[in-house]
Measured scan of single mutants.
Amino acid sequence: QLNAMAHQIQEMFPQVPYHLVLQDLQLTRSVEITTDNILEGRIQVP
C-alpha cells in the first residue's frame, strides 16, 4: 500500500526521489501529510 501511495505522490512531484517519498510515508502513512511535507520544504530534495 505504501508503494502505491509513493507512486501517486511521485506523479505529482517527479523531482522528489522515490526513496525520500517512501521514507516520509513510512512515518506519516498519509499521502496528504507527505504532500504537505514536500510543499512546505520539509523533505530535502538533492
Rank of each mutant, 00 (worst) to 15 (best):
R42P: 01
R29K: 14
L39V: 09
M12S: 08
Q8R: 13
Q8D: 09
T34C: 05
Y18T: 06
A6N: 01
Y18L: 11
E40M: 14
G41C: 09
P46M: 12
D36E: 15
V31K: 09
A6Y: 05
Y18N: 04
D36W: 15
E40L: 12
L39P: 00
P14M: 05
L20A: 08
E32L: 10
L22K: 04
R29Q: 15
D24S: 04
N3T: 13
I38F: 05
E11R: 14
Q26T: 11
H19P: 06
T34H: 00
E40N: 12
L2C: 08
D36R: 15
E32I: 09
N37I: 03
V21K: 00
S30L: 02
F13E: 00
M5E: 06
V16N: 00
Q26R: 10
E32Q: 14
L39K: 13
E11A: 14
I33P: 00
V31D: 05
I33T: 08
V21C: 04
P14Y: 03
E11Y: 10
H19L: 10
D24G: 01
V21S: 01
P14K: 05
V21T: 02
E40H: 13
A4K: 11
M5R: 04
Q26V: 11
I38H: 01
T34A: 00
D36N: 15
I43R: 02
V16I: 15
V31R: 06
Q1Y: 14
P14H: 04
P46S: 12
D24P: 01
Q26N: 07
T35M: 14
I43P: 02
V31I: 13
L22T: 03
H7A: 15
H7E: 11
Q23V: 06
V45N: 11
F13D: 00
I33F: 07
V45Q: 10
L22S: 02
Y18Q: 05
M12T: 08
F13N: 03
H19K: 08
A6P: 00
Q10H: 15
Q23H: 12
I9F: 03
V45H: 10
D24E: 02
M5F: 08
R42C: 09
L25P: 01
L27D: 11
I38E: 01
P46D: 11
Q15M: 12
V21W: 02
V16H: 04
T35A: 11
N37T: 03
I38V: 05
F13K: 00
Q1N: 15
I38G: 01
L2I: 12
E40Q: 14
F13C: 03
R29W: 15
S30T: 04
Q15L: 08
L27H: 10
P46N: 12
R29F: 15
A6C: 00
A4I: 13
Q44P: 13
L39F: 05
T28C: 04
L25I: 06
H7G: 09
A6S: 04
E40T: 09
V31C: 09
G41W: 06
T34Q: 02
V16W: 07
H19T: 09
Q44C: 07
T28Y: 07
F13T: 01
V21P: 00
V21E: 01
M12A: 08
Q10Y: 14
L25C: 05
L27K: 13
M5G: 03
I43Q: 02
H19V: 08
F13I: 02
L25S: 01
L39D: 03
Q44D: 10
D36C: 14
L22E: 05
V21H: 02
L27I: 15
I33H: 09
G41K: 06
R29M: 15
D24V: 02
Q23S: 10
T28F: 04
L2E: 05
Y18M: 11
T28K: 01
Q8I: 13
L2R: 02
V31P: 07
V21R: 00
V21A: 06
Q10N: 09
Q23C: 07
I9Q: 00
M5L: 12
L22Y: 10
I38S: 00
T34K: 02
E32A: 11
L39Y: 06
Q8S: 09
Q26A: 13
A4S: 09
V31M: 09
L2G: 03
D36S: 15
V21M: 04
V16F: 11
R42S: 05
N3L: 15
P17D: 07
Q15N: 14
R42A: 06
I43H: 03
T35K: 12
T34I: 03
E11C: 09
S30G: 02
L39G: 03
E11L: 15
S30C: 06
S30A: 04
A4V: 12
H19N: 10
P46A: 12
L27C: 10
N37C: 02
H19M: 09
V16A: 05
M12E: 07
L22W: 10
H7Y: 12
R42Q: 05
I43V: 10
P46L: 10
A6G: 05
A4R: 10
G41A: 05
T35Y: 07
G41R: 05
Q1I: 14
Q8F: 13
D24Y: 04
